[in-house]
Amino acid sequence: MSSFPLGDRGPSSMPAILRPPAILIVTALLFGLAALAVPRFGTLGNIENVLRIAAILGIVACGQAIVVILAGIEFSFGASAALASVVIVMALPATGVVGAFLLGGLLIVAIGMVNGLLVARFSVPPVIATLGMLMIASGLAAWLAGGLPIDAPPSDTFSWPARGRVLGIPVPILIAAAAFTLLHVLLARSRLGRGWYLVGANATAARLAGLSVPRLVFSGYAVAGLFCALGAVILTSRVASGQPMLAPNLPFETIAACAVGGLPLGGGRGNVLQVVCGVLIVAMLNNIVVLLNLPTAYQLILLGTLVVTAVLLQRDWAFLGQAVRLLTNGRRG
């Protein structure tokens, strides 16, 4: 048996090969434009700053990506991170720093498991299940903290996840690199990851092919919780306090990163490179808003526009052409 014969019409697999670099090019273009047009964007200090922001966002986006590939969506990340930060700071005197971080992390994994259980076993739509968890976790955090942030006593161990360096590289960036590597292994090399793609692509077909759909969905939300837990520990370490309103935009930013990276929100598709690029784009845009001294409210407006545009583009690249034609026709008319 020879190797698989190629189609007779030339290298037809080109688009599939070209797709990931396309997003890379977009990311690089945005970086280049920003470096040229936005004052202070290209400085080393600012680039490290962008990467720090991108690191936390990226770690959590890894979890969002898994859920999105499963054709689901996670809204509870921000609220569960806030709840975890409050629990960590409150537990600190009793458990010590490491114990508190572990406790907070496990809490988020548990929330992910509840989401997974609701979606997998009880067929609750992901939007409803995770929105419900958002409200519950948010409420719990506010109730526990009494409405105000609780400060953690200053300590080097506590601030290490956010401010520490190993070999001169900031710890969050190292953790993000590890998270992306783990996500890549899960998605591209593991049986679990393949199962997620299949379930996201067609859950009925997956069941009939003999896959355990509930188990795959449950594990997806649980692993997503694990990624969020890593991000939440760094966030808590950075603010050195328990904050009931720690990162309200986290779910939206991670969904935006996935959508911008090109993951269809309908599930079944996506890779690590797309997530990394999506995260970098979102982080750079947020940074540009800050550097241009625009109100931070602009970040959300920009993000929303970005998500909708990204989804439109995914569905139909011809949309770009249509938009251009519409604009040019408008000018002529």
Binding site: R194, Y197, L198, T204, A209
Partner: peptide, 15 residues
Amino acid sequence: EGLFPPVSAIGNASA
């Protein structure tokens, strides 16, 4: 009930 449209031919056959 059968197909995984966004998955490769190989991925469909090995499911």
